[in-house]
Design a protein around this nucleic acid. Sequence first.
DNA 1: GGTTAGC
DNA 2: GCTAACCAACGCCCA
DNA 3: TGGGCG
Length: 599
Amino acid sequence: MAVMKPIASLDIPTGEEWLYEIKYDGFRCVMHWDKDSIRLTSKNGKNLTESFPEIVEFCSEHESTVANFLPLILDGELVVLNTDYQANFALVQQRGRLKDSTRIKQAAEERPASFLAFDIIGLHGTSIEKEPLLKRKETLATVFQQIGKGKTLSFVPGHSNPKQLWDILFDHKGEGLIAKRKNSTYQVGKSHRDWYKIKNWRKLHGFLTTYDSQNNYFTVGIYQGDDVTEIGKCAHGLRETVFATLKELFLTNGEKRGAFYHLPPAICAQIHSLDLYKNELREPAFASLLPHEQPSTMTRKRLKLDMAMLPETIELTNTDKTFWPKPGYTKGDLLTYVREISPYMLPFLKERALTIIRSPDGVEKDFFYQKHLPEYAPNFIERIPAGDNEFLLTCEGLDSLMWYANHGTVEYHIPFQKRASEYPTEIVFDLDPPDRNSFPLAIEAASLLKELLDQLNLISFVKTSGNKGLQIYIPLPEQSMSYEQTALFTQAMAWTIEKAQPKSFTTERMKKNRGGRLYIDYVQHGKDKTIIAPYSTRKTPEATVATPLFWNEVKDGLSPEQFTIHNVPGRVKKLGCPFSDYQLAKQKQQTESILTLIT
DNA sequence: GGTTAGC
DNA sequence: GCTAACCAACGCCCA
DNA sequence: TGGGCG
Ligand SMILES: [Mn+2]
Ligand SMILES: [Mn+2]
């Protein structure tokens, strides 16, 4: 299926005539949607229909909503989304390779794909390629008004402010932007000057070790300790004269082995790349040569920081300082973690007054709680007045999060209500075993609680606290219950659990009276109480994270130490965020059963 | 981590 | 100019 | 009222 292809560009074209879209990393795909017939075709003509049954199923179910438009042709990107702004190419690629329909079905269940439509080129069976882009976008919007909101099939909106869009994209570490001329027609191929792609390149540092005279590629290496590791091969991006000089250098001074010419680490370069996947750079290209830099500085550690794309809004200090001595994680690792996890974590921090724990010299050194913003804090942190010329802490975006992390914040605690609201946004059960060894008690209690909540038809979520226990969330619709009501419910449930297994569970507050039993901390849910935020790091020796779980993970073998700043970002990308449907559940939650129970 | 009193 | 000291929460419960 | 608790 021949499609209109964007032309690579290093900078964003600006002006009134341009419309901007998020670029997603997936399969470029055209959807032919006719009555009782959905066909997905890649840009190379490959039929993808069988590989993405969830898309086909969604369309079939919603066919009646678009009956008036059929047959229609949508152009878009077939993706597996990590977040609204970042797609997971590795996963969509794996999906495309699956042959067995059972395995395809399973993958569609675990990580469902989305078709993100950015253009419509056929309507009522006739081509509308000659209509201007803005008109096609309007048509597309009309079609999607009928289909409705949904994750499986959605609409990529155009934006007029590229700076704003780039900021969002940067915060989410998205793939890039597409700039499209508003009045342009749809022209297959690349012979146009109307669509440009601007990628969100990571800029990393390495040295060149080998020249391959067969294909003109240079191998990029870095130091890993004293050893040199190769991370990719690079040919494009240099001016012709520079490239020729570089080639000549390798040919004359390099040690020849077959078609290869080797040099010891000396020539340094800045490289553009989309990502590092399995120690291999994706789409690397030269940005520039760095004649004044030392190859000894091009280390694995520096690569990690380069790939993290930490915001440059504030100066990030002491990135080498050890914060978790036991596993050897540094402040740089903390900053990298919060940067990576922010799209998943920020929704739970926004619009709430925070209580943080800071431990500026690492988790084994002095720490303190903080609820008020110091006067010297940057202006981009929103201030909630709290009398006495004091202001409560807020965290509305990545820049704020980075500022907190740079100040040695290792824990983020949040209240159950948003600022300027009296109503809890969720009910949370806090299950505290006496120690890590008793974590199985938390698994037991959580499973029991889950059964009870299921019987009440309540949607619940579970996370590790990152310390010793588990916490169970019941999202509530806006202003649906008061704290007085939720208190009655948490107390009733706590007593039910305690009564069910009094030898294992207790609501006794005094530690000395608990006798090795798990504490059902129902007091912890209330106004002005706080709970550790999802994905917050913890001040534990192992650098554990308060980690959202899938309910089917709550079983023997689960333990809090399995989830650390080292592996949680990867876990969330691979498995998805178990709390991704939290907002949806909040809307759908039926609280009648709770209200009945407490009256 | 940032600020400030004291040397 | 440097170092050291100082500062950075709070509400509820019950003996 | 202050120590325990989170
Ligand atoms: Mn607790
Ligand atoms: Mn310090």
